[in-house]
């Protein structure tokens, strides 16, 4: 965990901004930088998905944001609690050498290296062409995803404060 990330919370926007809706994760990360309190670490990751396991080190709460292929409703946001279960079949996808987010999560689970809380927000994409912007429905979902993550982290923070006060 790097300095300046004292809250123990990491938000990782995953995807390639130059490939249409694959840029959803980084777009949400950029939006969150403006809205999340300092101390919460926000990163963008486009390349080595296995390196995510290293990114999580030292963080108790990790939120990942990514896009998934078109499944019938572009812009629809799915939330998964990956501590409870792996990604359902149909949502798992792969990148170079067959390692995608699902594989990185399952590898970390095998190694006992999952963070205490691990949540994945996935948006259904429409177009992953090189050099095109986010499709309208996915661009519209950036604000919704950012708002849900802000709310989730705020309620987590409130719950922890309450827990601390009770203690």
């Amino acid at each position: 965990m790097s300095e300046g990330c004292a809250a123990g919370v990491l938000v990782a926007g995953i995807g390639n901004p130059d490939r249409g809706d694959d840029g959803f994760g980084p777009a949400v990360a950029r939006r969150l930088r403006e809205r999340l309190p300092s101390g919460i670490c926000v990163v963008e990751r486009a390349g080595d998905i296995l390196a995510l396991i290293g990114d999580w080190e030292g963080f108790a709460h990790v939120v990942m944001v990514d896009a998934v292929k078109a499944m019938g409703e572009p812009g629809r946001i799915h939330r998964f609690d990956l501590r409870k279960c792996g990604l359902p079949i149909g949502f798992a996808y792969r990148s170079t050498h067959g390692f995608g987010v699902a594989e990185a999560v399952e590898l970390a689970r095998s190694l006992g290296r999952l963070p205490r809380h691990l949540v994945l927000y996935l948006v259904e994409g429409a177009c992953f062409e090189i050099g095109v912007p986010l499709s309208p429905a996915v661009a519209h979902a950036v604000g919704e995803a950012a708002a849900r993550i802000v709310e989730e982290l705020a309620s987590r923070s409130a719950a922890e404060t309450e827990e601390g006060e009770r203690a």
Partner: peptide, 19 residues
């Protein structure tokens, strides 16, 4: 992923090398 459950140290080494 399956191998990592029984060969965790080897997989950790691989990840560290890659890093």
């Amino acid at each position: 992923i399956t191998m990592a459950r029984e060969h965790g140290a080897a997989v950790e080494r691989g990840l560290a090398l890659k890093k």
